[in-house]
Design a protein around this nucleic acid. Structure first.
Lengths: 156, 156
DNA sequence: CTTGCAAAGTTGGGAAAACAAACCCTCACC
DNA sequence: GGTGAGGGTTTGTTTTCCCAACTTTGCAAG
């Protein structure tokens, strides 16, 4: 999807090319919850069956999902996240965090995730090196490949 | 975009409805880098001008970007991220992280982000309560609203 | 044994987006 | 007064999306 011809070499664009199409991340949401069957996905996501079938094919060939047989006769399949797929969960987590915060200011979140430490998960993106919270103003972009033109940091 | 009729109340879906359309997150990438002018966006993202114009309108009315005048005569505009927009940066960060890791295994990342602590940013999603890394197997979903059906946790 | 139902898709046709290229408008500069 | 930049809009074509209906494989009931 995103930018067949993104003029820049960029892992964000590349990632979005795989999982940025409509419904793809919602498929991942469901699969991470254990709802990996076709009809469940159709019901829970609300996607047209043909579009969903196309997304699933794409995600499987990208190595994000696997299709596994859960019944021989009749043949029935189920989709599961691969390791790479599971590692996309942080994207879902940060999206949910943002949505809860900005789109439901005065409402309770419709879905709470509990961390193994016992408390409700409030996710924070941190720097592996220093452990500190990552804030926009603490970041500096350093292009490593040609194609990037920067206008320098912006102070809102 | 994502799911006008998502049968579930979900902040992920709601967030994607705003920023999940093609190019929207790439716009945010550019804007976060300070490249907020229309022609820059067209060049750097590779999107059709009309589509880009539509995305910008939508992001502005969603309160994620603002359009600001940077020259009176001739009138020239520039887009910037609002606070809500900047808070989407973690989504970009986790996407880049995933892309670097899974889509460029043996290549150097085309863009490195440096954290104010001095080292190259490797971002990790952590639990605010315990500070620990968030892993799939440590999470339990707790629906708070009707519409959710779970199949229980899955052990890959 | 044949009707009914479930799961997992596929097919066909119309509606909505995306795309590319050209065009427009305002100003600045030469 | 011609050229060019910036920030879009317009037009016509190509892709997607969307929906409903259909298919296939098997089990189960009547």
């Amino acid at each position: 999807m995103a930018a067949t011809k993104d003029p820049r070499p960029c892992s964000i664009a590349d990632a979005l090319a795989l999982v940025g199409e409509k419904y793809s991340l919602l498929v991942l949401r469901e699969v991470c919850l254990g709802n990996g069957r076709f009809d469940q996905l159709v019901r829970n996501i609300g996607a047209p069956r043909d579009v969903l079938a196309a997304r699933l094919r794409r995600l499987v060939e990208a190595g994000i999902l696997t299709k596994r047989l859960y019944s021989e006769r009749p043949q029935r399949f189920e989709y599961r996240a691969t390791q790479a797929g599971l590692e996309l969960e942080p994207v879902l987590t940060t999206l949910r965090e943002w949505g809860d915060r900005h789109l439901r200011k005065d409402t309770d979140p419709p879905m709470v995730v509990e961390h193994s430490c016992g408390s409700r998960l409030v996710s924070v993106v941190t720097c592996q090196a220093c452990g500190g919270t990552v804030r926009h103003e603490d970041l500096t972009a350093r292009p490593q490949a040609p194609g990037w033109t920067l206008s320098g940091p912006v102070t809102t």
